[in-house]
Write a protein that binds this DNA or RNA. Structure first.
Lengths: 223, 223
DNA sequence: ACAAAAGTGTTCCCGTTACACCCATGA
DNA sequence: TCATGGGTGTAACGGGAACACTTTTGT
């Protein structure tokens, strides 16, 4: 057919997977056991197959690591430099994903030799993964203030201190506690529950919950 | 080699090309003469080749249409649905480009059967091009207020009325003239020249120029 | 003289920021 | 009782929005 004059390429997905481990923002990385870039750290990836869309390929990578289907995930950028993979030419589409504490179990991660590494202690990464991570961080930094993506990293119920500390980590700057809580109060989709978390302090802190139903009916969000 | 278990795909670029024609924001479209989607309108595209990066492929499409190398261009999104191309499977990376009035000549466009069509009079497009255009519009709408991309659509010198009307078209809403000019005045990288445009009014309007040197030394922009 | 676009300041309001102390509890 | 994190209000400031008339000049 007409298209056949043109070359075909391997297409991969690379998933920049975020999670909170002990309250620290981490990336899921693996140390490559095969060439190319053997021994270097890299993000989790895989090749796109015939029977799946590119988005589906990213979901498959996520599913293998977590056993779950409905992980928050979004495309970041396509990377298409000729020599970005020193082995063969591969065009890669980067995605980022946000995992909540219940969305990963360490056994499954161990089986895939994936480890959580704190975002500000990243080892040197192979390929063009540093650029992918950089672009992803810019993206979520810009996005987290007007779209409620941060909740995907938290448990279903969380304290305001946890939420604030998450935002501080993502934005890389300290936030004023009273102003932060004022904005939370104005954001109707974050609601206080009757539950109290006693593990983080002697006094106990109210647990809050993100109400996506309220959010979807009034999609306004500003933190 | 190890990768060879995996399938390969055609990869294309699709360029959503904007231009100002008679002060109206337009897209460069073509009516397809070949299957698939013969007779439908589509944006300008091409297949990625072995010897070029994906970005380079987009630049090549632009170069063929304009004869120029340095067109403002940026990636929008990769589209990878299995059946997005009814002919064969093609994974496409969308780019948008902004052409100034001196960056296209109608003969060259005619040779490629490309025509300018006003952004609010678009015909039905084939493939997933409607989604590409929608995503692109969202992107430039969000971007034009904090990054000086609009100037790529204007001649080297322009009146403030032209600039305002461009922003009104992109944002889809009328802007207050005095507030607009106040913001322009605060933006050091837009400078008044000694020249006067007499074609747009009896009185004549001062011509302004975007100074990218100033912008690069103080990359701040807010309109 | 008049039509048509160019050009120009001020006021008000609201949202953002800065800031410090008391509370509840377990050890 | 004290150490620890939880929780609360107000005042000052600054940026954004609303708003109308005069100027210039070609016809």
């Amino acid at each position: 057919m007409f298209y056949s004059n043109n070359p075909r390429f391997f297409v991969s997905v690379d998933c920049i997977i975020f999670g909170l481990v002990n309250g620290k923002l981490c990336l899921l990385l693996t140390k490559r056991r095969f060439e190319p870039e053997k021994g270097k750290w890299s993000v989790m990836g895989g090749f796109v197959q015939e029977d799946e869309s590119v988005d589906d390929a990213a979901r498959r990578v996520l599913r293998h690591l977590t056993g779950l289907e409905d992980i928050y995930m979004e495309q970041v950028h396509a990377f298409g430099a000729i020599n970005r993979d020193p082995g063969e030419r591969v065009i890669s589409v980067a995605y980022y994903a946000l995992l909540g504490p219940d969305e990963y179990n360490l056994e499954l991660l161990e089986k895939h030799e994936a480890v959580w590494i704190e975002i500000d202690k990243l080892p040197p990464l192979g390929f063009d993964h540093p650029e992918m991570v950089k672009k992803t961080l810019e993206l979520i930094r810009a996005k987290c203030s007007h779209e409620p993506i941060g909740f995907n990293l938290l448990p279903a119920m969380f304290t305001l201190t946890q939420l604030q500390s998450l935002y501080e980590t993502i934005l890389g700057e300290p936030l004023d506690k009273r102003n932060f809580r004022k904005r939370v109060a104005e954001t109707h989709c974050i609601e206080k529950t009757e539950y109290i978390d006693k593990t983080g302090s002697r006094r106990g802190a109210s647990l809050y919950r993100f109400n996506d139903h309220v959010y979807l009916s009034h999609p306004q969000f500003k933190i």
